[in-house]
Computed example of a mutant assay.
Amino acid sequence: MHEPRSIVAGYDGSEEAAAAIRWAAQQARLRSLRLHVVHVSIWPLLTRKLGPVPGVADSGLERSAEAILEEGVNCARTCAPEVDVEGTLLHGLPAPHLARISSGEEMLVVGSRGLGGFLGLLVGAVSLELAATADCPVAVIRSDVHPGGPVVVAIDVSGSRNALADACAMAATLQANLRVIHVRHTPPGYRQPDRQESVAARIAAEEVISAAVRRARSLAPGVPVDGRVLTDTSVPHAILKASVEARMLVVGSKGHGFFRETIGSTAHAVLHHARGPVLISRHGNSSLDSEEQFDDTRL
């Protein structure tokens, strides 16, 4: 018998990470799951002097790391007292540890960026790396949320089955509407498609949306679902514009085989420019997301 999956949340002491912890705690409460708060200290990579300062109680880099973890755990317990919260302190590079510990879990939650200065850049890079390497969905949380907005999911020509399923689960959990979007990419240039070609492309796009909406309604019967076909010379631009007031934006992540540890240009742009939380739909090698089999321009 398998143990129930948990939600894993990375915490580094920053305001963005605190927002991620609070969001993760609420998700754990709504889904009746455990929450695992993880802090990864990079100090052992930089110095061996981790112990307390002689004569100064409760000091030292190791104690500082322990305090950060305790702060994250306490933040989660305060936000959702009924949730079973555990904490783990690890040492080394954050991304590999977080990817390993969250493998096969319900979700990995991180802040959009971390502590200021050099460490802030490092943590931001960690979020981006996890979006390309984790084996479970990765939620990148920003504090600018729209609590009354819909969950928006971008699908490609395949229907993006895993991303759609993740979006259905998120909409049901949040009791939010679900909006399914598909972007017809029209490369800029002098040649415009003739009318017959344009109509055929439009019909094909509408069929993609119709099939996705039908599947979403079967996966989440109580969730109001609508679908939209968008046309733009930039896929990320269309997605970002359509999700300005989204409560959560769900997209897939490209990359498999030798190139699995990459992130597509669409997901990359969305992570950098979306105003609200983004869920990158990632799953293990045995269940590659359908977006990973198509180029971004076909979204």
Results as ranks from 00 to 15, higher is better:
residue 231 T to G: 04
residue 61 L to A: 10
residue 124 G to D: 08
residue 257 G to T: 00
residue 188 P to G: 06
residue 48 R to V: 01
residue 136 C to N: 00
residue 172 A to F: 03
residue 115 L to F: 07
residue 81 P to W: 03
residue 121 L to N: 04
residue 47 T to Q: 07
residue 172 A to W: 01
residue 208 V to D: 09
residue 126 V to C: 04
residue 60 G to F: 11
residue 119 L to H: 13
residue 71 E to K: 13
residue 250 V to K: 15
residue 65 A to H: 02
residue 219 L to A: 14
residue 98 L to P: 11
residue 143 S to F: 03
residue 108 L to S: 06
residue 172 A to E: 15
residue 88 T to R: 07
residue 113 R to A: 09
residue 55 G to C: 06
residue 127 S to N: 10
residue 105 E to I: 00
residue 87 G to H: 04
residue 128 L to M: 14
residue 248 M to A: 15
residue 94 P to C: 10
residue 38 V to H: 04
residue 157 V to M: 15
residue 203 I to F: 04
residue 189 G to K: 11
residue 72 G to P: 01
residue 138 V to P: 07
residue 17 A to D: 05
residue 244 V to S: 14
residue 227 G to R: 14
residue 27 Q to K: 15
residue 284 G to T: 05
residue 135 D to W: 06
residue 164 L to P: 09
residue 298 R to D: 08
residue 153 V to C: 08
residue 273 H to K: 11
residue 186 T to A: 13
residue 187 P to E: 11
residue 56 V to A: 07
residue 230 L to E: 13
residue 135 D to N: 11
residue 180 V to H: 08
residue 246 A to W: 01
residue 123 V to Q: 09
residue 161 R to G: 02
residue 25 A to F: 07
residue 240 L to E: 10
residue 58 D to R: 15
residue 41 S to M: 06
residue 29 R to I: 01
residue 214 R to D: 15
residue 163 A to I: 12
residue 6 S to V: 05
residue 4 P to Y: 03
residue 83 V to I: 00
residue 288 L to V: 10
residue 281 S to N: 10
residue 179 R to G: 02
residue 240 L to F: 06
residue 254 K to E: 09
residue 255 G to P: 00
residue 149 G to S: 01
residue 213 V to N: 07
residue 125 A to Y: 07
residue 5 R to A: 01
residue 204 A to K: 10
residue 11 Y to I: 00
residue 60 G to M: 06
residue 271 L to C: 03
residue 285 N to C: 08
residue 232 D to I: 14
residue 100 R to W: 11
residue 28 A to C: 01
residue 178 L to N: 06
residue 201 A to C: 15
residue 224 P to Q: 11
residue 113 R to T: 02
residue 242 A to I: 12
residue 130 L to S: 05
residue 135 D to P: 06
residue 109 V to H: 12
residue 103 S to Y: 04
residue 121 L to A: 15
residue 213 V to I: 12
residue 118 F to R: 13
residue 28 A to T: 03
residue 135 D to K: 13
residue 228 R to T: 10
residue 22 R to T: 12
residue 174 L to C: 10
residue 125 A to S: 14
residue 77 R to P: 07
residue 180 V to F: 09
residue 158 S to M: 10
residue 71 E to I: 01
residue 222 G to L: 13
residue 78 T to W: 05
residue 170 M to C: 13
residue 251 V to F: 12
residue 180 V to L: 02
residue 192 Q to N: 05
residue 238 A to V: 08
residue 269 A to G: 14
residue 146 H to L: 01
residue 280 I to N: 04
residue 16 E to R: 00
residue 266 T to M: 11
residue 255 G to I: 08
